[in-house]
Write a protein that binds this DNA or RNA. Structure first.
Length: 588
RNA sequence: GGGGGUGUAGCUCAGUUGGUUAGAGUAUCGGCCUGUCACGCCGAGGGUCGCGGGUUCGAGCCCCGUCACUCCCGCCA
């Protein structure tokens, strides 16, 4: 017989009645009624009730009195039918009449309760992460992540992808996010960088002839954090050779549907919608639109000017959204929303409304427009009696961005963003470049290995900055419910085009050679056409789990300031280590 | 770099206009209890009100500074 257990805490049922079993786990709760004592024993499979009654030996009964929460306990006994069953738990028909008890390890009283709805705050739970991990919500998140990883591997393996590891100690490339940097003892004064993504390596694997590659891989970015951003995070990194955009989209739309089916049992029989970047910005004010609901942004720039309302007359852009069924909002609600959009995080100057109330039209601009004009503006943009129009005006990018945020906020307030509903889509035709006014140079919107669209290739070589700025990237993002889940592109595989890209980005030939010489060289030796995509694995898991934060889907995450509260990392290192690395710290 | 929120018992929180000995729930400990399953009942212990300074006869509460956590903006090719 097994030393510790014959069964886990989740599997015993009526069919096991009269069996002698051994079971082990953590004491979830104890209910001591005097001469009768119940113990809920828990492991990751479930909870089973132990009962210690007069049939137990005296020493067992004495031992039971001293048991506390989270003791690791092993019990032996007979499975019996309960006299009062509990239909709330899967094992509720049975219990184990304990004949023998072993405390495998006692426990101090945990600082918070190990319950689905714990009483612990985030900070405390982070410090005692190993206790938090015992809780059901964390266990199901970690299990979901495991399931996702397994299904990704199954799908990609079946499609002929090879899983290949790439190095973590690589070279710093000052484009893009800040690198985490690792000093080298053997090469004093020099540093490795941890990869922000295995981008160049996967392209080199294409040159190496591994025409379908993937990796579930840790990536590192030394940037400020968010609920959905960690300094180290995991990507499903993929690359294919001899493909164009359509091949990549088909392959990974297939993977997404496979995961929806296998993990959530949701079938998508239709193709995922596709939207150009321009349309996404125009109608949703975002390059990652949440299309679980409509409320699309409409433009009013040309039709509301010339009525002496200076805010409109001076605006580069005027746009609005129509919020269904909110026409009877109170003044207080409207004022509160106006304050909401004026917060620096949204940054709007103000909020104009047209209420289509039961007793007529009411608006914050009815000094400038007649009720008929306002009704026409409203009805032309999809409003009907009982609806509310919000309008913002100002600089184009800022305003449309603020409208996008208001749209999401109203969607949330109206319950249109159900986390059990999934709306995936592809966004494509991103601009290749972004002009930065401060540094007076172009930056790659995606990364410098993204190819221009074939039809824009000629413009990419133009001498005119304006023409180059218009070039579209052969790039695509995968979006679910307003969250960017993945992004990729068809890459440059031509050494000359890659040189041109570095030139456009303002690198001298020497600079480019110094930083990216290895890849330019590789492209001289028969690089196949290739492209790929990388998915944010943690985010995908969180979305599938219906959560905003990725933290619970990572066993040991960092806090908001990049610290590990449990380890208390990062920390200083001792003088000997510094000396070996030939590093001296400077006090500021 | 910036904005919002929070910080009071092990934990989660309340604490009025600045005024007596800072409370509740829960957890812990002790007692009673043979069908509980958030067991119940009785009792007890438990506080650097984040930290430092200031105003005041008097500060958990007001002011200044600082730290930590959290959400967001910038940033994240």
């Amino acid at each position: 017989m097994h030393k510790y257990r014959t069964h886990n805490c989740g599997e015993l049922r009526a069919e096991h009645i009269n069996k002698e079993v051994k079971i082990a786990g953590w004491i979830h709760r104890k209910r001591d009624l005097g001469n009768l004592c119940f113990i809920d024993l828990r492991d990751r499979y479930g909870v089973t009730q132990l009962v210690i009654d007069e049939s137990a030996a005296a020493d067992v009964r004495t031992a039971a009195e001293k048991l506390g929460r989270e003791f690791v306990l092993q019990a032996a006994g007979k499975v019996v039918e309960r006299s009062s069953k509990n239909d709330k738990m899967p094992t509720g028909e049975i219990e184990i009449v304990v004949s023998d008890l072993q405390v495998l390890n006692p426990s101090e009283t945990p600082p918070f309760t190990i319950e689905d709805e714990t009483d612990g705050g985030e900070e405390l739970r982070a410090k005692f992460r190993y206790l938090d991990l015992r809780r059901n919500p964390l266990q199901s998140a970690i299990k979901l992540r495991h399931k996702m990883a397994q299904e990704v591997r199954k799908y990609l393996d079946a499609q002929g992808f090879l899983e290949i590891e790439t190095p973590f100690l690589i070279k710093s490339t000052p484009e893009g996010a800040r690198d985490f940097v690792v000093p080298s003892r053997m090469n004093a004064g020099e540093f490795y960088a941890l990869p922000q993504s295995p981008q160049t390596f996967k392209q080199l694997l294409m040159v190496g002839g591994y025409d379908r590659y993937f990796q579930i891989v840790r990536c590192f970015r030394d940037e400020d954090l968010r609920a959905d951003r960690q300094p180290e995070f995991t990507q499903i990194d993929c690359e294919m050779a001899f493909v164009e955009r359509e091949d990549v989209l088909q392959t990974f739309e297939g993977m997404a549907k496979f995961l929806f089916k296998k993990v959530l049992n949701i079938e998508f029989d239709k193709e995922f919608p596709r939207m150009s970047y321009n349309d996404a910005m125009k109608y949703y004010g975002s390059d990652k639109p949440d299309i679980r609901f409509g409320m699309r942004i409409f433009e009013l720039s040309d039709r509301v000017k010339g009525k002496n309302f200076s805010i409109f007359d001076n605006a580069e852009y005027i746009g609005g959204i129509c919020v269904e069924g909110c026409g009877e909002y109170s003044r207080k609600q409207l004022d509160e929303l106006t304050d909401w959009v004026k917060r620096p995080q949204v940054g709007a100057g103000g909020l104009i409304y047209i209420q289509w109330k039961n007793d007529g039209i009411k608006s914050s601009v009815d000094k400038f427009y007649t009720p008929e004009e306002l009704r026409k503006i409203a009805s032309d943009n999809g409003a009907k009696p009982g609806d509310l129009i919000f309008i913002m005006a100002g600089k184009k990018n800022q305003t449309i961005n603020a409208l996008g945020k208001l749209r999401l906020e109203m969607g949330s307030r109206l319950g249109l963003r159900d986390n059990k509903v999934f709306a995936p889509l592809w966004v494509y035709d991103f601009p290749l470049l972004e002009w930065d006014e401060e540094t007076k140079r172009f930056y790659a919107m995606h990364h410098p290995f993204t190819s221009p669209k074939p039809e824009d290739l000629e413009n990419f070589y133009s001498d005119k900055k304006e023409t180059v700025a218009e070039v579209c990237a052969n790039a695509y993002d995968f979006v679910i419910n307003g969250t960017e889940i993945g992004g990729g592109s068809i890459r440059i595989h031509d050494a000359k085009l890659q040189q041109r890209m570095f030139e456009v980005l303002g690198f001298s030939a020497e600079d480019a050679a110094k930083r990216f010489g290895f890849i330019i060289n590789a492209f001289k030796y028969g690089a196949p056409p290739h492209g790929g995509i990388a998915f944010g694995f943690d985010r995908w898991c969180a979305i599938f789990g219906g959560q905003e934060s990725i933290r619970d889907f990572i066993a040991f995450p960092k806090n908001n300031t990049g610290r590990d509260a449990m380890l208390d990392a990062p920390s200083g290192i001792d003088e000997v280590q510094l000396k070996e690395l030939k590093i001296r710290l400077v006090k500021e």
